[in-house]
Design a protein around this nucleic acid. Structure first.
Length: 569
RNA sequence: CGGGACGUGGCGCAGCCUGGUUAGCGUACUUGACUGGGGGUCAAGUGGUCGGAGGUUCAAAUCCUCUCGUCCCGACCA
């Protein structure tokens, strides 16, 4: 392709509203433009990259027997009512009405549609399993879109769904899928981790995320270098505490005045005690009312883990009205002693002695509190968020590390959540009717491309991993109107094209500096720079974007070497 | 949804506090000349009525009210 004919509007400066590096660079490199909050137009250069990601995904999906489909993005409300998600999905579901007033939504995901298709067409265990996937635009009316294409409201996603006759077969596909995802992200040149994850709104029994390690990531990943255990921090297990020996003479419970001392830090400082001798009481609400959670003062409560412990639908911090309705509760002075609520405590609490809690009255705390003697705990469990340097739950000496990650893929086993609700059933060998077991598997296509930029860039621009690069090679003449240079460029260009190497020829009349800056910005892996002095000496310069190293090669022999040079990038 | 900020040619910004000439700068764009190995120089140009509506005033980019949009920080997700 000739640069002068392409629509690649590069920019010298980053737009003011771009925050993360991938967003800035995608806009500057002329890959995307914003239309509205979280809604982007993909320009030619951007589309080339997305197509690369898609092709890798297709390839790996097909490898494990996936069949590509293309489902409607506009979906009738009835299906969503059937799955109970019409109400449950909330405001994120973009709802629309047609001219007859019939309700539809713009699909944020496609479990309903795919389950509907499968239940109509598949009746027998003989037709199972089946794995269908699509690459398509989704719409989620996010509370807060941000980071450019990384968290858009409209975005390109690969979603796959599998249907099975039994659990074992579901798990088989799940593991194949995990392997395929690993292949995909490796081929995309990403550094990532497969981490244990919560199954979130979609529900189900087990689930992994694929997280690309990057500081701009919105997730936190806890992992152990020793044994390889890795989990989203919202699910990461903590190691059970080792039993501590109770002091022979436990302190008596005593009320102390702590005026104005509300936070753990303030109370610990005031009483001259370490933070882990303070027990925090967090007031929460779920569908059944209020509950309390207890964690050590130096720990943070983990709502996801606590929700799973309780087994409730949802769980969130109690709002302000919870305090105004219950005058006996005082913010900063709540404690579990005599608290008339179900109290769930982190396991670490069970080995504490002589600790401090709020006294449920203003400006007072209890000291010398003992678990057995003073507290009524409904259940102990792992409800705290692990921290860096915590011991690994899976091996002897490992310690947690915590890094940020971008969730680019997520795989779930859904069980029969949708198939039961929507009656997707089949007859087994014995002629008995069963609900199909389902799995679902997503990859954010644009997010994957953005994540690749987050991991591969420098002050000059993008450094595309080879397999995602919009072009493999860019030919940059110092002056394309010079006939010698022009000839050499055309020769190289034609030969590379014939060899199936995607090549961009910068035939613009701009000065060299402009062309080099753009080439660096766009991140094309290999630059071939052709100038009059080198050429008359029978040489051209080859520069590797990643290392910024350039070398002179004899022309025209160099043409034969390019494929090999590319291979090593 | 709660908290904060911003909206001035394509892009990046100044002007606003303390209303008052033709709204300014950089860049981009057009034309010409020179130049030609890292966003070059000079010259001449094109392009905005200051997000929108209402108000105050002799006079509003500037003050007030409302509104729309965008971004950032926290609870959700590919």
């Amino acid at each position: 392709m000739h640069f002068s004919k392409l629509f690649i509007p590069t920019l010298k400066e980053s737009p003011a509203d771009a925050e993360v590096i991938s967003h800035k660079l995608m806009v500057r490199a002329g890959m995307i433009r914003q239309l509205a909050s979280g809604i982007y137009s993909i320009l030619p250069l951007g589309l080339r990259v997305l197509r690369k990601v898609e092709q890798i995904i297709r390839d790996e999906m097909n490898q494990i027997g996936g069949q590509e489909v293309f489902l409607p993005s506009i979906q009738p409300a009835e299906l969503w009512v059937e799955s109970k998600r019409w109400d449950f999905y909330g405001k994120e579901l973009l709802r629309i009405k047609d001219r007859h007033g019939r309700e539809f939504c713009y699909g944020p995901t496609h479990e309903e549609v795919i389950t509907d298709i499968v239940r109509r067409e598949i009746k027998s265990y003989r037709q199972l399993p089946i794995l269908l996937y699509q690459i398509q635009t989704k719409f989620r009316d996010e509370v807060r879109p941000r980071f450019g294409i990384m968290r858009g409201r409209e975005f390109m996603m690969k979603d796959a769904y599998s249907f099975h006759a039994d659990e074992k077969d579901t798990q088989h596909t799940y593991h194949q899928m995990a392997k395929a995802y690993t292949n995909i992200f490796e081929r995309c040149g990403l550094r990532f981790k497969q981490v244990q994850a919560d199954s979130g709104t979609i529900g189900g029994s087990f689930s992994h995320e694929f997280a690309v390690l990057a500081d701009s990531g919105e997730d936190e990943i806890g992992f152990c270098e020793s044994c390889g255990y890795a989990s989203n921090l919202e699910m990461a297990e903590s190691k059970p505490p080792s039993p501590s020996t109770a002091p022979s003479t436990p302190q008596d419970i005593k009320e102390v005045e702590t005026p104005g001392k509300k936070s753990v830090k303030e109370v610990a400082g005031f009483l001259n005690l370490p933070a882990h001798q303070i027990v925090k009481t967090i007031l929460l609400e779920n569908e059944n009312g209020r509950v309390a959670g207890l964690v050590r003062g130096d720990h943070e409560i983990n709502l996801v883990k606590m929700k799973n412990l309780i087994g409730c639908e949802w769980l969130q911090p109690a709002g302000e009205e919870a305090f105004s309705k219950k005058p006996e509760l005082h913010r900063g002075y709540i404690g579990p002693v005599g608290l008339d609520l179900p109290v769930y405590a982190d396991r670490e609490i069970s080995v504490l002695h002589d600790f401090v809690t709020g006294a449920n009255k203003p400006s007072a705390h209890f000291t010398g509190v003992q678990v057995q003697r003073d507290l009524k705990i409904k259940e102990f469990g792992d409800i705290r968020t692990v921290q860096a340097k915590d011991p690994c739950p899976r091996c002897e000496d490992g310690k947690y590390q915590v890094k940020r990650g971008i969730e680019v893929g997520h795989i779930f086993i859904l069980g029969t959540k949708y198939s039961s609700a929507m009656k997707a059933v089949f007859l087994d060998q014995h002629g008995k009717e069963n609900a199909m077991i389902m799995g679902c598997y997503g990859i954010g296509v644009g997010r994957t491309a953005a994540a690749a930029i987050e991991q591969n860039n420098d002050e000059r621009g993008i450094i595309w991993p080879r397999n995602l690069a919009p072009f493999q090679v860019i030919i940059i003449p110092v002056n394309y109107s010079n006939s010698d240079l022009n000839n050499a460029c055309d020769t190289i260009y034609n030969r590379l094209q014939e060899a199936g190497i995607e090549t961009l020829l910068d035939d613009r009349s701009d000065r060299l500096g402009v062309k080099l800056k753009d080439a660096d910005l766009m991140g094309i892996p290999l630059q071939i720079i052709i100038g009059p002095k080198n050429l008359s000496a029978g040489q051209v310069e080859i520069k590797v974007r990643k290392t910024n190293e350039s070398s002179l090669h004899p022309y025209p022999q160099v043409i034969e070497d390019i494929p090999n040079i590319l291979k090593d990038l």
